[in-house]
Amino acid sequence: MTHPFAADADEQSVYAGLVDVDGDASQWAFGTGFDDPLAGVDTAVPADVDRGDLAAYCLMLGDDALVLAQRLAEWCSRAPELEEDVALANVSLDLLGQARLLLARAAAADPGAVPPLPPDSPVPAEDALAYFRDAGGFRNVALAEIPNGDFAQSTLRLLLFSVWRLALLERLRGSADPVLAAVAGKGVAEVAYHRDYAARWAVTLAQGTAESRRRILEGVGAVWPHAAELFAVHPVERRMAECGVAAAPDALLADCEPVLEEVLAAADLPRPATAGPAQARGRAGSHTPALSGLLAEMQSLAREHPGGTW
């Protein structure tokens, strides 16, 4: 089979065939446009499910993914090796895709959850949620928003996050909300790769040089205090678990502990406490100061050009 762009033997430039056949070359500057990731998906909310709660729950999981995607993207061009640069960008992209689906699900479940914009605004609902909420409106856990620190700290954060998120998504495949179940079904295969990646690096760094081990031990101290919040239960999560939509956060601890134990044992690391007294602070909109800085960078362009289309 010939390359479709090489079909014309007189083709002079390998780039010529890339230009849109309709002559709209602007797509190369502004992208091809982002349409609704749930276009054509039946987004009806099951009869016995509260729309507001469902939207709030989807925001929680969507914000976790969105905020960590942004943190991971900060590694782009700064990772220790080119391969890790590419890997972290890929993980970020997977999470961004999950965030888009979840924010779109939140907007479809309860349009009232979307920040109001002028009627002529071209901003789709998922973008309004991503770019036009302030820190207090975000529902992510603190683990997603804490600064990257060094590569060891970022590795441990990704390990904890992906072990927990994989356990969550595995359970959500059976959610009473078919859209959430389908989003989780896609995410499982993706996050399984993220978890393996982080776990292998954690072991490699812990068993590497004295310096890499020192950094991993420091990273444990910076990251693990945020573990307990993952298993704290917000009232929305409790209610959504009761009607079969959500996975109860406290039930996930039993799924996560054996996996974390396996990694820590292979890394020959002492086992820090994962459970402990904690409040679902991030779920209630209470965040560390780090989130404001992250959002300022992520949202500035969209807020400066609220009529912009991309």
Binding site: D94, L96, G97, K186, G187
Partner: peptide
């Protein structure tokens, strides 16, 4: 036409939809 996206974040999805539409 029904389309099943590959990865959740596959950036080619927009281009795929535009190409199918065209």
């Amino acid at each position: 036409v029904s389309v099943t996206p590959t990865y959740s974040g596959c950036p080619a999805m927009g281009a795929i939809r535009a190409d199918l539409d065209r």
